[in-house]
Amino acid sequence: MTAHPDRAQIELTNVLSALGNPLRLCIVRVLADGCEHTCGSIVDGVPKSNLTHHYRVLRDAGIIWQRVSGRETLQSLRREDLDARFPGLLDSLLAAARNETEDPFAAAGSASPRTQG
């Protein structure tokens, strides 16, 4: 696994580019709960190889942490780092995504979030 960028290396253009994809924004919306999630527990209906690509883009942009735990890779949002670098940006993007009138999962290739119990 590639190293995560340091906080100071997180660039606004990379963050915005990564979150411009509906599926990646969907992933970040789920991770905004502050918990760690396994790769397969975030969205349904997306091939593992596609998800691996999207997680890599999010990690390389400095948006998520990835941590290997046994046979699983856990994802979590780098909220503290993003808030320090770009105050209010993440909250604004998440609020805008919640207010979208179009189904964001349909735009992401029919992916839907897993039901949170």
Rank of each mutant, 00 (worst) to 15 (best):
65 W>E: 11
80 E>Q: 15
44 D>E: 15
101 T>A: 15
17 S>V: 11
39 C>R: 09
85 R>H: 04
41 S>E: 13
36 E>K: 11
86 F>S: 03
94 L>W: 00
38 T>L: 06
55 Y>W: 13
79 R>A: 15
24 R>A: 15
85 R>V: 02
46 V>T: 02
22 P>T: 07
37 H>T: 02
47 P>V: 00
21 N>A: 13
25 L>N: 14
45 G>L: 03
56 R>G: 12
42 I>W: 02
91 D>F: 06
104 P>R: 03
66 Q>H: 04
45 G>Y: 08
98 R>A: 13
103 D>M: 01
42 I>V: 10
88 G>H: 10
48 K>Y: 01
67 R>F: 09
62 G>V: 07
99 N>L: 12
66 Q>M: 14
55 Y>Q: 05
79 R>V: 07
48 K>F: 01
20 G>N: 14
46 V>S: 09
64 I>H: 02
97 A>G: 13
54 H>S: 01
35 C>W: 13
50 N>A: 06
40 G>N: 10
30 V>E: 11
54 H>R: 08
83 D>R: 09
76 S>Y: 04
73 T>V: 07
62 G>K: 00
16 L>A: 15
72 E>S: 14
61 A>Y: 09
69 S>M: 05
25 L>K: 15
62 G>I: 05
25 L>Y: 13
104 P>L: 02
98 R>G: 12
51 L>W: 00
21 N>S: 15
42 I>G: 03
49 S>T: 04
83 D>P: 08
101 T>I: 14
96 A>E: 12
38 T>H: 06
46 V>G: 01
34 G>L: 10
59 R>V: 10
39 C>Q: 08
54 H>M: 03
89 L>A: 07
60 D>P: 03
85 R>C: 15
70 G>L: 01
70 G>M: 00
41 S>D: 14
55 Y>C: 04
26 C>E: 09
59 R>L: 10
46 V>M: 15
34 G>Y: 08
66 Q>Y: 00
69 S>T: 04
73 T>W: 02
52 T>L: 10
90 L>P: 13
22 P>H: 14
53 H>N: 03
102 E>G: 07
82 L>I: 12
46 V>E: 03
29 R>S: 15
58 L>S: 02
41 S>G: 11
65 W>R: 10
35 C>P: 00
29 R>T: 13
93 L>C: 05
38 T>Y: 07
96 A>L: 14
28 V>W: 09
17 S>I: 05
99 N>D: 15
61 A>M: 05
57 V>P: 01
68 V>S: 02
92 S>A: 14
66 Q>T: 11
15 V>N: 12
93 L>W: 04
30 V>F: 03
66 Q>E: 09
69 S>H: 06
50 N>T: 04
46 V>W: 01
